[in-house]
Computed example of a mutant assay.
Amino acid sequence: MNARSAARLVASLLLAVTLAACASRPPPLAPVAAGPVKTETVDMLVATTRQPTADKGVLFTGERGSTLSFTNVVVSIPPTREAGSVQWPRSVPGDPAHDFVTTAVEPLKDGQLRPWFKQHETKSRRVLIFVHGFNTPFDASVFRFAQIVHDANANVAPVLFSWPSRGSLLDYNYDRESANFSRSDLARVIETAANSPDVSDVIVMAHSMGSWVAMEALRQIALQRGRISPKVSDVILASPDLDIDVFRKQLLEIGPKRPHFTIFVSTNDRALRISRLISGSVTRVGAVDLSDEQYLAQLKNASGITVLDLSDLRNGDRLNHSQFATSPEVVQLLGSQLIDGSGVSRSDMDGSGQLAATAVGTGQVLGSAAGAVLSAPIRIFEGTGRY
Rank of each mutant, 00 (worst) to 15 (best):
D151I: 05
V344Q: 05
I339G: 00
V105R: 06
T41Y: 05
I77L: 12
F261C: 00
A194K: 07
T71M: 11
E121F: 00
T39W: 08
A47R: 00
R114M: 09
M205W: 03
S303I: 00
D139V: 05
A370E: 07
T122E: 10
A359D: 02
G65S: 03
T103C: 04
D312W: 02
I228C: 06
P96S: 08
F117T: 04
D175P: 06
L9N: 02
L251S: 04
A20S: 15
N135Q: 02
A47Y: 00
S141V: 06
K109L: 12
L296S: 11
L290G: 08
G65E: 11
G111N: 09
G385F: 04
T61D: 10
E253S: 10
V142A: 04
R227T: 13
S182P: 11
R270G: 00
A97D: 09
D139P: 07
S208T: 12
G57V: 03
T103P: 05
E106Q: 13
S291W: 00
Q298I: 00
A238N: 03
G335Y: 08
G385P: 10
T67D: 14
V204N: 06
V142L: 06
E121W: 01
N301Q: 15
R114E: 15
L68S: 09
W88E: 06
Q364A: 15
I339M: 13
S184D: 14
E253H: 09
L218C: 13
G371T: 09
N180K: 15
D175E: 11
E40D: 15
D201H: 15
E177Y: 13
A11H: 12
Q298D: 13
R50C: 09
T262N: 08
V142I: 14
M349T: 15
S322Y: 14
F134T: 04
L68P: 09
L113N: 00
N173I: 01
S281P: 00
R183L: 10
V86S: 10
R50Q: 05
D309C: 10
R81N: 03
D201L: 04
G304H: 13
Q220W: 05
L272Q: 02
F117C: 07
S275E: 01
R8H: 13
Y295G: 04
S239W: 01
V75F: 08
L108E: 01
V285D: 05
S229D: 14
P377E: 06
V232Q: 08
P26V: 06
K56G: 07
T18M: 11
V213C: 09
S196V: 01
K56T: 13
L9D: 03
